[in-house]
Simulated scan of single mutants.
Amino acid sequence: MKNIVLIGPSGIGKTTIGVHISKKYGFKHIDTDNLIKSTYNISISEIFEKYGEGYFRKLESNVVKGISSSKSIVISTGGGVVLNKENIVNLRTNGIIFLLFGNIETIINNLKNSSDKRPLIGNNKDCFENVKSMYLERKELYISSSDYIINVDCKGINEIADEIIFYYKKHLSCSN
């Protein structure tokens, strides 16, 4: 079975939804940021501080390439995975790519409720402008990289997960 690949802006809920789908539907879940942390034994923030974004993107590409041949897993990617076209090519080889998308306010609310430190977003004072800037900068990349776009605004976790599974099953039945 193909993988369910979740892409979208940082803070949109990819990991939360990925974990929920894995529990509800029995898939294994892999979060690429968590895999980077465990594989290289360093936090994402430390990678950015010590080595910079370019180095992080190389690690991210290595991890994406390594998991792309897996089957029947839910992959929650980092918000910048779309910056490298090769990542999308690799993820698409055995995956259906779902863009989780919503308005900036949804992302900001999610970030306020998250304990994760996100190096490219910054502190609360800069948060809105940084989120808005990245959102606009990457929007077309997200859209062009996705097979399906799932709007998360005003929806609960169950509703989002069920919508993804609906399109996942439909996609599989149409490709046979």
Rank of each mutant, 00 (worst) to 15 (best):
L59N: 09
I160M: 01
S175A: 06
L35I: 10
F128V: 04
G26D: 00
S45G: 06
E86Q: 12
N103C: 05
S61L: 11
S114H: 07
H171N: 11
N158E: 10
E129L: 09
K117L: 14
V63P: 00
S145D: 05
E137I: 04
Y51R: 14
D33K: 00
Y55V: 11
G26Y: 03
I157V: 05
C154T: 14
L59G: 10
D33N: 06
N3S: 12
L83N: 08
G11C: 07
G11Q: 07
L99P: 05
F166I: 04
I96F: 07
E49K: 08
L59V: 12
S10N: 11
I4F: 07
N113V: 00
V19G: 01
N90M: 13
T77F: 00
Y25V: 08
Y148P: 08
N151Q: 10
T77V: 03
K117H: 12
F27K: 01
I107C: 02
I47D: 13
G156M: 08
D126A: 14
L83C: 11
N176H: 11
T32G: 04
T77D: 01
N113S: 10
R118G: 10
K28Q: 12
L100Y: 03
L141S: 15
K71V: 15
V64A: 00
T32M: 03
L35P: 01
A161M: 04
I160E: 01
K37R: 14
G18N: 08
M134W: 15
K71D: 12
L100T: 12
S144M: 06
Y135T: 12
G8F: 09
G78C: 02
G11M: 06
H171F: 10
I4L: 03
N124G: 11
K65H: 10
I75P: 02
R118Q: 11
H20P: 02
L120V: 06
K112T: 04
Y142T: 13
I121K: 08
V74N: 02
G18T: 13
Y142W: 10
N176R: 06
V89A: 07
G156V: 11
I36H: 08
N34M: 10
H171M: 06
K169N: 13
L83W: 02
S133N: 14
T15P: 04
K112P: 03
V81L: 02
F27W: 05
K58I: 15
T93K: 15
C127H: 10
K169V: 12
N110G: 05
K58R: 12
E105A: 13
D162M: 04
N151H: 06
S173P: 06
I97C: 05
S146A: 15
V74D: 00
V63L: 04
D31K: 01
K169F: 08
G102F: 08
S45D: 04
I42Q: 11
L120R: 02
D33C: 03
K125F: 13
S145K: 08
V5L: 02
I67Y: 05
I150A: 02
T16E: 01
L6P: 13
G13E: 02
L83D: 13
S133F: 14
D147I: 04
E53Y: 05
I67W: 05
V131D: 07
I12G: 10
H20M: 05
V131Q: 05
F101G: 13
E159G: 13
K132D: 13
G78R: 06
I67A: 03
E159M: 09
L141R: 14
L172F: 07
I97M: 03
